[in-house]
Nucleic acid binder design. Structure first.
Lengths: 243, 243
DNA sequence: TATATTATGATTGTAAGACAAATTCGAACG
DNA sequence: CGTTCGAATTTGTCTTACAATCATAATATA
């Protein structure tokens, strides 16, 4: 408990609303309330915490945008079951113009992830992976982006780690944007890469899983960045030193 | 611009304050304002955005806890230079009881990171890495945790990626907690591992960098988890099915 | 003139009260 | 027993007011 304090305290400066945030977070961290539980109505919380309504609402607003709680008019306030992705979305919104950074971040995470996955993936999940590969191989047109995404999602889930999930899922949001960027798909290459990763995972070999994923993501990255490059060349870009 | 909209819109439900959050974030994302810029005073923002002060303040409060802006009484409101870590800290505060998950997340990220680092690290940063290793090797007592942390921090920075930085820095916050968990340090092993990573990075060999980092982090993880295990065994734990 | 000191006022922080909107819940009615 | 309508609870928004802080400028002092 005391160790949590110094951890969270470092964020706090002063301001009542921040103290309220901390108190509510501690309520969860200390296990006094469980995810899904309902919070008391604002009026009641005001009294218990001894703060005014604006202060309380500022705190609740912060907690909501961070995905800790959900509020419904008249319905009350509830602690969320899963916390993780929301806070990230703001950061990504700010970095969305920096596509290379996002691609790289995804690459870094997935590279590490596949290693963990090699240790923890279940047979059932392996089966699901195989299915997505078959779907891509059997697809007639080039609209297999869904299965591509699912492939990576299964690997993310196999790590069975809420922290990692929160990070990777937010990054996968950008998958659609990347999808739109791709003009010519390479089904054969994708299938081959995915299969190689699949087999490495099946062997539970973290090193080979890494190598295959690295090969795959390097290929994807090259491709995306080349498109990005073309896109930049064909677009008027505002720089600090326009010519 | 329109593409950003659909991305951020998915987060927004209704509520004025959320719309205000989005507008201010877009201000940054679209490059109309730069990090470090000062925001207009609240009174002015109220008029421009056409909302009341509580609503505006709820939005600003959210943005502040997410580390997008900083407010000082009387000093005004400023956009932060670096955004990334703060939002995470709450999530970590909630996951802090789940140490294995955090360790694993750190492991996954750093594994991917070192691969990127192998491609992008500068000679200067390599030199800095070497220094931390020497510091550890030359340290008399076992309090070289600072240099251990710096070692990993340099690698994180070498990726030169704001998104990754935001993630890894928040995870490194837990480094202190882990430090406290460690009772017997293994200086020789640490130095050897760090050196191996350093040499791999110097060779710009992503595969070897990965392998060495994997070896290192696996060792650290085993150690931490065994401590965690002992700690759990000596502690009364509340489970959903107490015996 | 330069420096220190004070005082003003702008800006964020907190509080209280009121009304609006929405939706859940219950009561009345068929 | 089911349906519909109304009322009350809870969140959402606005207005006003005051407190606290401290940046800046005006003032006084060397």
């Amino acid at each position: 408990m005391s160790e949590h304090d110094i951890f969270v305290k470092s964020v706090n400066r002063n301001t009542l609303s921040k103290q309220v945030i901390e108190q509510i977070v501690q309520l969860l961290a200390s296990g006094q309330v469980k995810p899904g539980d309902k919070l008391p109505p604002e009026m009641e919380l005001m009294e218990k915490l001894g703060v005014s309504r604006p202060v309380l609402r500022e705190a609740l607003s912060s907690l909501e945008t961070m995905g800790v709680i959900t509020r419904k008019t008249r319905g009350g306030t509830y602690f969320n079951d899963k916390i993780g992705s929301e806070p990230f979305s703001v950061m990504l919104a700010l970095s969305i113009d920096n596509l290379p950074a996002i691609i790289e971040a995804r690459m870094a995470l997935e590279l590490g992830l596949v290693t963990i996955a090699a240790e923890k993936i279940t047979d059932e999940q392996l089966e699901q992976l195989k299915e997505t590969i078959d779907m891509i191989a059997d697809s007639e047109d080039d609209n297999y982006g869904v299965y591509d995404k699912r492939f990576h999602k299964i690997i993310a889930l196999s790590a069975n780690n809420p922290v990692v999930e929160g990070m990777i899922f937010s990054l996968l949001i950008t998958h659609e944007k990347m999808d739109r960027l791709i003009r010519t798909r390479d089904r054969e290459i994708t299938v081959e890469h995915h299969l190689a990763i699949y087999h490495a995972l099946k062997k539970r070999d973290p090193y080979e899983a890494f190598e295959q994923m690295y090969r795959h993501l390097s290929f994807v990255r090259e491709k995306l960045l080349s498109y990005e490059q073309q896109w930049l060349e064909n677009t008027t870009v505002l720089t600090s030193d326009p010519m």
